[in-house]
Design a protein around this nucleic acid. Structure first.
Lengths: 128, 128
DNA sequence: CGTCGTCGCCTACAGCCGTAGTCAAACTAT
DNA sequence: ATAGTTTGACTACGGCTGTAGGCGACGACG
């Protein structure tokens, strides 16, 4: 547990998601993945964010000739956990059940989704 | 839909929660509510945040003699909805079911909570 | 070989955020 | 009345964010 998972900003999340897709990966490839989902990405902006993620210790790289091949130092799971904690605390004062209830009540879930979630709960219950 | 619900920062959330408890309310009372839950609140900091929330259009006030009585211009529901959207998009790419699954899997839910959630899902299903 | 595009590095800059301090006016307690 | 307290207004300031621009080196193309 060396690194305490740095704080990841909104746009940095998008960059990280592009990297989690597959790595090691060059800046050019990261940028092209980003543009693929959102054409408004400016290459310079993406490069700045990549550099910041390296500074923050969320990414590292191996030098390959003239370019860098980036690799994540934090897993998606770690980041999801961190962001989830912060959201839960901030918005629901840490109370899990009200949060879940909120989403179930205010969001659309297909009947299939509802069934899967019920399954999940049931299995959870059985696993104690 | 006049106001597009301003973006609320971490600490601003705490201030707003102190106000949603009951209003209209004076700055002094807000500060004392904040200190009640977290003694490390500095009055000056709280006042700055209150002022910023007014600028942002999240609060307004009525003048009462020499002091102001503040009222929220955004409801907790609105803010919860906005923060939830942003969290869901940012962290789960907008996918609701994986998000719910994540919390059910990685968090502790008491058997009672599990039962209540099952109920919720069941009722939801019945309501189509 | 010269030109042009690409790469990473460094710089910029405004706006938001957390955290307060100063100040003048008004109020309150002596 | 005088001094201390409280209030809102204004100011400060460094770090984080979003959004890039400029620069010098290196390699590709003609």
């Amino acid at each position: 547990m060396s690194h305490p998972v740095p704080r990841i900003s909104e746009t940095e999340w998008e960059v990280l998601r592009a990297i989690w897709i597959g790595h090691p990966v060059s800046a050019a490839e990261i940028i092209s993945r980003l543009s693929a989902t959102d054409p408004s990405w400016h290459p310079k902006t993406a490069r700045t964010l990549i550099a910041r993620l390296v500074e923050k210790g969320a990414l590292t790289y191996d030098v390959d000739g003239r370019t860098f091949l980036y690799r994540p130092l934090v897993t998606e799971e770690q980041c999801v956990a961190q962001a989830s904690n912060s959201f839960l605390d901030r918005v629901f004062g840490g109370a899990l059940k009200p949060m879940l209830a909120h989403f179930v009540e205010h969001r659309n879930l297909s009947p299939a989704d509802l069934r899967e979630l019920e399954d999940l709960l049931a299995r959870k219950k059985r696993r104690r």
